[in-house]
């Protein structure tokens, strides 16, 4: 009865005949993003007279991309379930500090690498427990752990910077290349591809979407809703651990502010990629494009000799325009 007042979404009353796959892709969110990306890329390429392709620039671009893309993959999954994690930046700083200490103390990679990932899993689990067992809304819970993890960074580091990180991480993740791509980037692409496949083709992946679409129905269908949520927070923790590792590879230095502000970039990449904050809709491919656009904007302003400070302005505008447009397209036919 209230359908009138609450608004009903526009629906085709008859199945529309199948469109060409290409046409559908271009009309999709991912298609729009790809076009945006290409336009940006071409503009920067022309404007920078090819500086975009200088080796140093490409490397730093690709590694920066990897550091954002990996947690963004986890963030996509968390947001798909209808949650959010704003503690990622602090968590990255904390893992970098703890793991960095291990490395600085002379432990080898065989110990350090699992330690980074386990720490991430642990901190992710802490978030999950507060959210699930404590029934604290995800944004509040992770806002809390954001502060707590940041404090722990200070406790771990004291007031000193951690600088004696062995260069081995840089060597492995940044300098070593397979083909044109640094290992860090390959790793990021592998993670994204793996989870894109997982989300698309695996039963558990589809359950994430089901949960985000209709939690009540998913519960009634017998899905273990809480387990899925818990797993998603642990996952973004592990990914944050991995990103911390790459971050030390890019700049072998941990300071108390490491990772601060990072989470907003990650969320921006995910949102730009078309994942809806209400859950249940979004893809890793979208996040891939979203991350690339975010990085390209930041890189582009430098190359174009625009003041680098414009990148924030541009990024903000791109988010507003792209989300605003897609809301205008998909807006429910609403009552007055």
């Amino acid at each position: 009865m209230m359908s009138g007042a609450r608004g009903r979404t526009r629906q085709a009353s008859k199945p529309i005949p199948g469109q060409a796959a290409l046409g559908r892709f271009i009309a999709s969110r991912e298609g729009v993003l790809l076009v945006t990306l290409l336009v940006l890329g071409v503009a920067i390429d022309l404007g920078s007279h090819g500086a975009l392709w200088y080796r140093a620039n490409v490397t730093s671009f690709l590694v920066d991309f990897a550091i954002t893309a990996i947690p963004a993959t986890g963030m996509t999954i968390v947001i798909l379930t209808g949650g959010i994690d704003v503690s990622t930046g602090s968590m990255l700083g904390l893992i970098a500090a703890l793991g960095g200490k291990l490395l600085a103390a002379g432990w080898g990679l065989a110990v350090a690498v699992p330690a980074f990932l386990l720490l991430g899993a642990l901190f992710g689990l802490v978030n999950a427990i507060i959210i699930i067992e404590g029934a604290v809304p995800p944004i509040v819970a992770t806002l809390g752990t954001l502060s707590i993890y940041r404090m722990l960074v200070f406790i771990v580091l004291g007031s000193a910077w951690l600088t004696d990180i062995p260069p081995v991480l840089t060597k492995i993740f940044v300098t070593t290349r397979l083909g044109p791509l640094p290992v860090a980037t390959l790793l990021a692409l592998a993670v994204m591809a793996g989870f894109a496949i997982f989300l698309r083709f695996f039963r558990a992946g589809r359950h994430i979407y089901a949960l985000g679409n209709n939690e009540e129905a998913a519960r009634l269908a017998g899905l273990d809703v809480l387990r899925i949520k818990r797993a998603s927070y642990v996952l973004i923790g592990i990914f944050t651990g991995l990103a911390a590792l790459l971050n030390l590879g890019e700049s072998p230095l941990v300071q108390t502010s490491t990772g601060s502000g990072f989470v907003l970039t990650v969320i921006a990449a995910v949102v730009l990629g078309g994942t809806e904050l209400s859950g249940g809709r979004g893809t890793i491919l979208g996040t891939l494009f979203g991350t690339l656009i975010v990085q390209l904007v930041q890189d582009g302003v430098v190359l174009l000799h625009i003041q680098p400070f414009w990148s924030g302005v541009l990024l903000g505008l791109i988010i507003l325009v792209s989300v605003g447009l897609s809301h205008a397209w998909h807006r429910p036919a609403e009552a007055a």
């Binding site: 921006a268 924030g312 541009l314 990024l315 903000g316 988010i319 507003l320």
Partner: peptide, 8 residues
């Protein structure tokens, strides 16, 4: 978005 823009 505006946070990025205003800081920018």
């Amino acid at each position: 978005a505006t946070m990025f823009a205003f800081y920018g």
